[in-house]
């Protein structure tokens, strides 16, 4: 591993049923199509709707040694249980995208980190599909990190979304954009 080479470790976590795995796969697919190295590791087994689910995505310029993320650079948390579990592990200078629709507490990260609170459920409902919470959050993440565009993610979406859900491509794309707009406005102090 060369020092200072691009190396981004992400944990995405929430309830089973919130599309955590799809979000991770989309991030991985988008990064791969952009020519980067990538690993995607889901938690597996006992996950059911309403339970907890998480996945780890590593994106780098060189072959990735370790797919297991101990201390993530970025965290996307869609529920309170995930915040409590993963927030203490976030690296100093890291980024946390937090679904404030379901998280009513102030996060207490161990180190100095950037926290973007996104009312992802409300924004998804406004777009007409409450299932798009995950895409709103991912859009916000992509906007803040800037190494992949929302358009690239929208382009990769058909590759990871099962064919029977392809009718939801437009609303998912809109959700990615809405999340990015929200994060941009937030960061701009609006």
């Amino acid at each position: 591993m060369t020092k200072n080479a691009f190396y981004e470790e992400v944990i995405i976590a929430g309830f089973g049923g919130q599309g955590i795995m799809l979000t991770g796969k989309l991030l991985a697919q988008t990064a791969m199509q952009a020519g980067r190295e990538v690993t995607y590791m889901p938690s597996y087994g006992a996950e059911v709707r309403g339970g907890t689910a998480n996945c780890m995505v590593v994106i780098a310029d060189e072959p990735i040694a370790c797919p297991v993320v101990g201390r993530p650079d970025s965290l996307i948390v869609l529920n309170k249980a995930s915040l409590n579990k993963f927030c203490p592990r976030l690296k100093e200078g890291g980024l946390m995208i937090m679904n404030s629709s379901l998280i009513d507490i102030e996060p207490e990260p161990a180190d100095e980190v950037e926290v973007i609170a996104v009312p992802a459920d409300e924004l998804a409902v406004e777009l007409g599909n409450p299932k798009c919470t995950n895409m709103v959050a991912l859009g916000a993440y992509l906007q803040r990190r800037g190494y992949l565009t929302v358009d690239a993610a929208a382009k990769a979406l058909p590759d990871v979304l099962a064919k029977r859900y392809h009718k939801t491509l437009p609303v998912n794309t809109a959700a990615l954009r809405r999340g990015a707009e929200f994060a941009q406005a937030k960061a701009g102090g609006v």
């Binding site: 190295e37 990538v38 690993t39 995607y40 590791m41 889901p42 597996y44 990735i64 797919p67």
Partner: peptide, 10 residues
């Protein structure tokens, strides 16, 4: 092992 079976890579 379970990691290799479950993880996705290009």
């Amino acid at each position: 092992d379970g990691f290799l079976g479950q993880m996705m890579e290009p």
